[in-house]
């Protein structure tokens, strides 16, 4: 390990507890904030909770139906597995989700990254895919003992294969930073000429299993305009990413089920 990497990891380990403490204090302040909720807020929350409970009741009644559906889907998966074995193709990669809290958000003009409270101890390693509730979030770029850095999809260095919803042809997605006002953006290139996007009918960009680190079909963003590319063969356009990216507090890391693959 070079002296530069050694120094960098030293700073990582030195600063990680400080950021973890700050993040835990923020969590605690949220908790105490809720403890001090007024009667009106509590009534409103209780109302929302009773709605969720009634929905849960309805879902519980459907358990039998859902169990049957699960059994049917499992049967289909095993049938697919046996077919894959018969024709000798590599089975699809499957992942185990791992939740992690965000301890630090570095949203600079030049690149954007998050630091999370899990690291090498939780089995993380560089390159793993990361999701949030709105879809794709980024990938693990650096791992320390108890923390890890995530390169966000808005970061200019983030590049991944993707495809549009309802179209299997691969396109290239690259991050393009955060614009004034906090809108994260990206650029999509190598788009086939027959695809048309407009304000009324935006194209939804989704992840592709060709990238290796993500399952197929996770939302990346929306494309509202496509222009002719420099080569004249393909189009390119701006991708509008989820504006909530800058405020995320919890992320899901995709650990491969079979790391040896």
């Amino acid at each position: 390990m070079s002296w530069k990497l050694l120094l960098k990891s030293g700073f990582d380990e030195f600063q990680a507890p400080l950021w973890e403490t700050a993040s835990r204090v923020a969590d605690l302040s949220h908790f105490w904030g809720h403890m001090a909720d007024s009667k009106t807020t509590l009534i409103e929350k209780n109302r929302a909770l009773s709605r969720i409970r009634s929905d849960q009741h309805l879902q519980t009644e459907r358990t039998q139906e859902l169990n049957e559906e699960i059994a049917r889907l499992r049967g289909l998966i095993s049938h697919l597995d046996s077919l894959e074995k018969q024709i000798n193709i590599e089975p699809k990669r499957s992942f185990i989700p791992l939740l992690a809290r965000v301890s630090k958000r570095t949203l600079n003009g030049w690149w954007q990254e998050f630091t999370i409270r899990r690291g090498e101890n939780a089995g993380l390693r560089p390159g793993l895919g990361v999701l949030h509730q709105g879809g794709l979030l980024g990938r693990i770029s650096k791992v320390a003992k108890r923390s890890a850095d995530i390169e966000l999809i808005s970061s200019p260095g983030f590049r991944v294969v993707a495809h549009f919803d309802g179209d299997d042809r691969p396109v290239t997605f690259q991050g393009d930073g955060i614009a004034l006002g906090g809108t994260p953006r990206g650029i999509v290139s190598d788009v086939p000429h027959d695809l048309i996007a407009s304000e009324q009918t935006p194209l939804i960009l989704k992840s592709s299993s060709l990238s290796g680190n993500y399952p197929n079909g996770l939302k990346i963003g929306e494309v509202r305009q496509l222009e002719g590319g420099e080569d004249g063969l393909f189009k390119r356009g701006q991708v509008l990413l989820d504006p909530q990216i800058g405020h995320i507090t919890e992320v899901t890391i995709l650990l491969p089920k079979f790391p040896q693959e």
Binding site: T106, N108, G246
Partner: peptide, 15 residues
């Protein structure tokens, strides 16, 4: 560290 905390809040609005 304090600057980092400020940037955490400001960064999400693009500054």
């Amino acid at each position: 560290f304090l600057g980092g905390l400020i940037n955490e809040a400001c960064g999400s609005v693009g500054v």
